[in-house]
Amino acid sequence: MFKDSLFKYFAIFCTSIGLIVLALLLFDIFSKGLTRIDWDFITNLPSRRPERAGILTALFGMMWIVTLTILIACPIGIAAAVYLEEYSSKNRFAKFIEINISNLAGVPSIIYGILGLEVFVRLLKLGNSVLAGSLTLSLLVLPVIIVATREAIKSVPNSLREASIGLGATPWQTIQRIVLPACFGSILTGIILAISRAVGETAPLIVVGALVYVPFVPQTPMDQFTVLPIQIFNWTSRPQHGFVVNAAAGIIILLLFVFLLNSIAIILRNRHNKRVKY
């Protein structure tokens, strides 16, 4: 029994290490950066002087990237999931795609960057544009959306489908009007998690050539861009103390987005789990 309680306290200690590090990280970043955040920091363009630099272009770049990524990745991801769950009758092709998706989910994000650099930037000649960056991130978040949507579709009971088909609806009508609306909440959760992933992603965008210094806000999908994590990376790697403070302030803004998105996802998931009881 002694060993038993000894392990218990050791385990509580282990669990708290993770949480303590999390708390330390947040405390460290807030104590370094919180006082730096003001309206100017958000609306200023990047600058050589740390006290005048701001994150306006990075914020707009992020909005552009996230919006385009979701517009591209959602239809494709949901369509792929619908095919795998509703059409493919567990044939070899479906099995192959399944293995493939699980593999893609484990490919390091920087490899997607290399793919994007070759295919979108150089082959399709999109240059270091918002569009090239978004296409790259779309491929990256596609497995996230597909897996979430598949889980969502699986949760829809067969009786609904059978009732719809029995009333004379075609397979697509059943999917479009019965299955997808029934599991929309869960799909949305997956999409939000994909957005959260895209917001924090840095490495692939560096490889496709997102710039460090962009003195203007992107106006079209073909413009060059930077995003918040890249701005933070750049500030972190500079020697002057002022830029470290800027990096911490940028991180606070970035974390606000990430935590907000994740909380929405959790709330949606809980509400959905409560509401739907087939």
Partner: peptide, 19 residues
Amino acid sequence: LEILAAIPTVVYGFFALTF
């Protein structure tokens, strides 16, 4: 604990280097 996996990795980089 899963928050730990949601934090962007550039943030961890900053934490490792400066703290």
